[in-house]
Lab assay of single mutants.
Amino acid sequence: TFELKGKVGKVVKIAEDHYLVESEGDKWIAYSDEKLSLGDRVMVVDVDGLKLKVKRIP
């Protein structure tokens, strides 16, 4: 299986209740415990079905 946990991506869209993150050339629906901005670099900390939980990284 394709393992996304630990992968790095970038926030490419902000929606009302989720983010769109591009990682490894694909776009994924993501959510975070912190507020993210367009262009933020993020790391995948968990995968919930087809949704990614991400956190901001420097």
Score class of each variant (00 low, 15 high):
A30P: 00
M43C: 15
V54E: 00
V21W: 14
W28T: 02
V54S: 01
G49P: 06
K10W: 08
L38W: 13
L52T: 03
S37R: 07
L52C: 04
V11T: 03
R41T: 12
L4V: 09
D17P: 11
L4I: 14
K35Q: 12
V45Q: 06
G49T: 07
T1V: 13
L52W: 02
F2W: 05
Y19R: 00
W28D: 01
V42K: 00
S32R: 03
G39A: 10
I14V: 11
A30N: 00
A15E: 09
V12Y: 06
E22L: 11
A30C: 13
D40R: 01
I57V: 08
Y19E: 01
G9M: 15
P58I: 10
L50W: 13
F2S: 15
E22D: 05
V8K: 06
K10P: 02
D17V: 10
D40I: 04
L36N: 01
D40L: 04
Y19M: 09
K55S: 14
L4G: 15
V12L: 11
K53T: 14
W28F: 13
D17I: 09
E34Y: 05
K27D: 10
F2D: 15
K13W: 08
E3H: 02
G25N: 06
G9V: 15
T1F: 14
K51Q: 11
P58S: 10
V11M: 02
E34K: 04
E22Y: 07
V11K: 00
V21M: 13
V47D: 03
Y31K: 11
K27W: 07
I14E: 10
K53G: 10
K55L: 14
P58A: 09
L38N: 12
V11S: 00
S23H: 12
I57K: 04
V45L: 10
V8G: 03
V45G: 03
I14H: 06
D48V: 12
V8Y: 04
L38R: 06
I29K: 07
G6K: 00
G49E: 08
K35A: 10
V42W: 01
H18W: 11
V42D: 00
K55D: 14
H18P: 00
V47S: 04
S32G: 11
S32P: 01
V12R: 04
D33L: 07
M43P: 00
E22M: 07
K5I: 15
V44N: 02
V8S: 05
V8L: 14
V47H: 05
K35N: 11
K27T: 08
L36F: 05
Y19F: 08
R41W: 06
Y19N: 02
E3V: 01
A30I: 02
G6F: 02
I29L: 11
D40S: 06
L38P: 10
K53Y: 12
L52V: 07
G9Y: 02
I57R: 03
D33P: 13
D33S: 07
G39T: 06
T1E: 15
A15T: 10
V21I: 08
L38H: 09
K35Y: 11
K27V: 06
E3P: 15
E24K: 03
A15R: 12
F2H: 15
H18E: 11
S32D: 03
V11W: 00
R56H: 11
K7E: 05
D46N: 03
I29M: 10
E24M: 04
G25A: 05
Y19G: 01
V21N: 01
E34Q: 07
G25W: 04
L4F: 03
D26R: 09
V45D: 12
R41M: 13
G39P: 01
L20M: 08
R41G: 14
L4W: 04
D17E: 11
W28Y: 14
G9R: 01
K7Y: 03
S23N: 04
V44T: 03
V54I: 07
V21Q: 00
K7T: 04
W28V: 04
L50M: 09
K7N: 04
S32L: 02
W28C: 03
R56D: 02
P58G: 07
G9C: 15
D17W: 07
M43D: 05
E34S: 05
F2Q: 15
L36I: 06
Y19V: 11
E16I: 12
L36H: 03
I29N: 09
I14G: 03
V21L: 06
V54R: 00
D40F: 05
K10A: 11
F2R: 03
H18G: 13
G9N: 01
E22T: 05
G49I: 06
K55W: 08
E22N: 05
K7M: 05
K51L: 14
K13S: 09
K55Y: 06
K51H: 12
S32N: 04
T1I: 15
V42L: 02
F2E: 15
E16W: 11
K55I: 15
R56M: 12
K7F: 03
K10T: 06
M43T: 13
D40K: 01
D17K: 10
D46T: 03
S23K: 01
L20Y: 13
K35W: 10
L4T: 14
K5F: 15
S32Y: 01
K51D: 08
K13G: 11
D26K: 07
V47W: 05
G39F: 13
E22R: 05
M43Q: 06
G6D: 08
K10D: 11
V54N: 00
I57S: 08
S23V: 15
E16T: 12
R41Q: 13
D48S: 04
G9K: 01
G49W: 05
Y31T: 13
E34W: 04
V8D: 12
K13T: 10
L38K: 07
K55M: 14
D46L: 03
Y19T: 04
W28E: 01
R41A: 13
D48N: 08
L38S: 07
G9A: 14
P58C: 14
M43E: 15
R56L: 14
L50I: 10
D48T: 08
T1N: 15
L38C: 09
D33K: 07
V12C: 13
G49F: 07
P58V: 09
W28R: 04
E3K: 01
L38T: 08
L52Y: 02
V21R: 00
I14C: 09
L36P: 02
L4C: 15
F2G: 15
G6W: 02
L20K: 05
